[in-house]
Design a protein around this nucleic acid. Structure first.
Lengths: 273, 273
DNA sequence: GAATAAAGTTCAATATACTTGAACAAAAGG
DNA sequence: CCTTTTGTTCAAGTATATTGAACTTTATTC
């Protein structure tokens, strides 16, 4: 995404580039409005939320519906359509990093007995690419595509620990430090101290900071000083005594080392907000 | 999707409706061009494939890239971008039918020991909504969003067996009966005879017709004579002797019965081509 | 390594496709 | 039943997407 517009006056305020297709942008903004927390919207709600006139909104919704990207329920509410799932299948099945990562993750899973995750930094959050679950537990919901805040997860904290301080500050300024459990770090100074500890130790520990009773360990995946992502594992507090942590971290670090040579296979996206 | 255009002359040939946003349609056609079989495209390839001028194609790609729906590789090739995964996560996590289906599928999984699938008919193909895998095997790749032909899979054949004959013919005319293994049914009359057998038996059997050494059983999910989808399970030939089939079918039928009352939770899409 | 071909990028002009508000229809709510 | 809210339609005008030609970069050939 080179220079937006060559003729923009020096200090101009964010002129939309000439190649930007406005109606497409509106459609994508519309799709992104549907989330886990609010999966159903009415025409008027969407129109107000996105500041798009109702007549335009109808065109957007009808177009997206005709392609199956949105479905209209009998009660006039809209939802995301399953055609998007087909699209996502084609990405997942063709994501080159997974072919390298999954066997490595499965081996770590076997040796640790815990759930193993591959995450990358995306817009200042930790983005889950893949999980490998223990055989003895049926975990049918897939985590791929989930995005979590960095301050409360081991995969996120290890990424923060590899970033420049100004970027850490930018991320905190953008998302804040919301509390999820009693152990969530909600203080900027405390978080920075934690990051220093992590740097010295070489791995990050999550102590029920996002979900109660869930502990975790994470290591960074770095290639020539560039942060590519993180390998991590989580489990219940009962299955993860502190004396196991070093062993887990070593397992993960070996895997991360193998993955670090696959820089070109990692999907590209903005790591910072 | 009501009447396309009120002013279209009587016998007019497929006039594009007035609400259709052309540039959005082009973007979606572009996204759909990226598949498992051909996940990377260059500008010129896309331009030729979709009959869109190169200059327009650049605008489409730059717009999609700016939203992370497409990524440009260093070698000037394009791929689907991971932002689509985030979108798909929000659909999956909010698909109401999964909340009802997964517990039922997990129970069938436990009792059968095989892999259990929930599929729905979509455009004359079988669309995989969810799988539940056995605990003793690590199957990390998710099947959600995969779409398979009906004539070679148990879930597809059970759906065909519930359709009107003219629809079966339409589907065969649209996709043909391509061969995948030595046992794939590639003859129209033979397929129709098989469908009759399935109707009398109440469940469909897949005998290594799509993949070698993979057998399967499927039952329909029907509510008030409307076909909603299918519950099925598959396993290796060694783990699925013929004498188990009736037991599997009974397990599945019980589950399908429970799901049939959830008609309103099934995602809506065109079952026929 | 020069020459040639192919692929990718940019731009200004043009036409068309998108947006808009107002007017209407259909539900929802009191 | 009336009022209010929400959804739908339409014609008009303008902003926006498309186009081809000119240009730059990358790849291929000899």
């Amino acid at each position: 995404m080179e220079n937006p517009n060559t003729f923009s006056p020096s200090g101009a305020k964010e002129e939309t580039p000439s190649w930007m297709l406005g109606s497409v942008a509106k459609c994508i903004r519309t799709l992104k409005t549907f989330t886990v927390n609010k999966p159903e919207w009415t025409l008027t709600q969407l129109s107000k939320e996105l500041s798009i006139s109702k007549s335009t909104m109808v065109n957007i919704l009808k177009t997206l519906e005709s392609f199956g990207y949105i479905q209209k329920l009998p009660n006039q509410h809209y939802r995301l359509g399953i055609e998007l799932l087909e699209l996502s299948y084609h990405i997942r099945a063709s994501l080159p990093i997974l072919h390298s990562a999954i066997p490595i993750m499965e081996e770590i899973q076997r040796q640790s007995g815990q759930i193993v995750y591959l995450t990358i930094p995306k817009k200042g959050k930790a983005f889950y690419l893949q999980s490998v679950n223990p055989g003895n537990r049926n975990i049918s919901y897939s985590i791929t595509g989930r995005c979590t805040l960095m301050h409360c997860s081991c995969c996120g904290k290890i990424m923060l620990s590899e970033m420049a301080e100004e970027m850490v500050d930018l991320i905190i300024d953008t998302y804040g430090l919301p509390r999820f459990t009693t152990t969530t770090i909600t203080d900027r100074a405390a978080l920075k101290a934690e990051l220093q500890t992590i740097r010295e130790r070489g791995y990050a520990i999550e102590n029920c900071e996002e979900f109660p009773n869930v502990k975790g360990v994470a290591v960074p995946i770095c290639s020539s000083n560039r942060l590519l992502g993180s390998l991590s594992l989580t489990g219940s507090v009962f299955s993860m005594p502190d004396e196991n942590m070093v062993q887990y971290a070593t397992l993960l670090a070996n895997g991360a080392n193998l993955l670090a040579s696959n820089e070109e296979f990692f999907p590209k996206c903005d790591p910072y907000p």
